[in-house]
Design a protein around this nucleic acid. Structure first.
Lengths: 144, 144
DNA sequence: TAAAATTATATTGTGCACAACATAAATTGG
DNA sequence: CCAATTTATGTTGTGCACAATATAATTTTA
């Protein structure tokens, strides 16, 4: 309607974009100890849950394509947290699995996640509600 | 506490990260017509508001550093929407200003913002409330 | 079963995003 | 006024993120 609609401060898209960056920055010093970046931490979350996954499965969980994941997974392999092994049954797919070293970092990951949860300053229930709101927002945007 | 805390689906950080990507993807086809990327659109929002700004001012508004902005602004200059001119009074700073061509895209920008606002599927008031929540979240994360 | 289509991953190119470092102009303190 | 510091911007290197394309293995179909 008026000029206010154009103002940066009234754009939800920017508020979400800025909050996402704020999360990445908040995680950074904690993840540095672990030796991974934030997107690498997301991959670790998937693997701590599933233990083994194909590249496609990880991409589906995180919404990332192979152009992003291929080099990222090679870096995680170099760090020693995962192994990449071409499947025997179907040689098109690569099986990504935790190494003992990667599995051992699970507890550290849990601590880091909890620490950031605190840093949001949201109570546990309002945090759960916000989680649901963001999922709905994402879903609506992907529909349209 | 239990395993659920480690699950990807319970991480607010990931929900925000995914929503931010969803915004970028939703904007992409609309911005392609305009000939800019999503971060470039954010810079244009700042300039549509202020008309002229230094690199530092734009960085402050968007939370981006010069390593990101320097090349981005050169691309916007090549597109023809802005001019970069070293200030006469203080030769350390570069004045970024809209060209007539860049100013003329203001109406298109307003339409695009409104279109995405609709795509969120949020009513105007719940959208305003969510905006405030995300600002608070960002602020809390930057404090901690 | 041989050709066509599909599936899974990898590669290349462009554009963010930031840390670390570099440079040059302005400001300040002695 | 001159040296030291601060300020504003730029450059380099690493790591996402995705589109477009490539490759190779499987599956389908004729």
């Amino acid at each position: 309607m008026n000029d206010n609609m154009l103002a940066l401060e009234n754009h939800l898209c920017f508020a979400v974009y800025a909050a996402s960056h704020a999360f990445t920055k908040a995680y950074k010093p904690l993840l540095a100890e672990l030796g991974v970046t934030y997107p690498q931490y997301l991959v670790m979350l998937v693997l701590w849950e599933k233990r083994v996954a194909t590249v496609t499965e990880i991409g589906g969980a995180l919404g990332l394509d192979t152009g992003t994941l291929s080099p990222l997974l090679k870096r995680l392999e170099k760090t020693g947290f995962i192994r990449r092994e071409r499947s025997k049954e179907d040689e098109r797919q690569v099986s990504i699995q935790l190494t003992p070293s990667g599995l051992a970092k699970r507890e550290v990951g849990t601590r880091i996640g909890a620490a950031i949860g605190n840093a949001t300053g949201c109570g546990l229930d309002s945090l759960g509600q916000l989680l649901q709101t963001m999922k709905t927002l994402r879903h609506n945007l992907e529909e349209a």
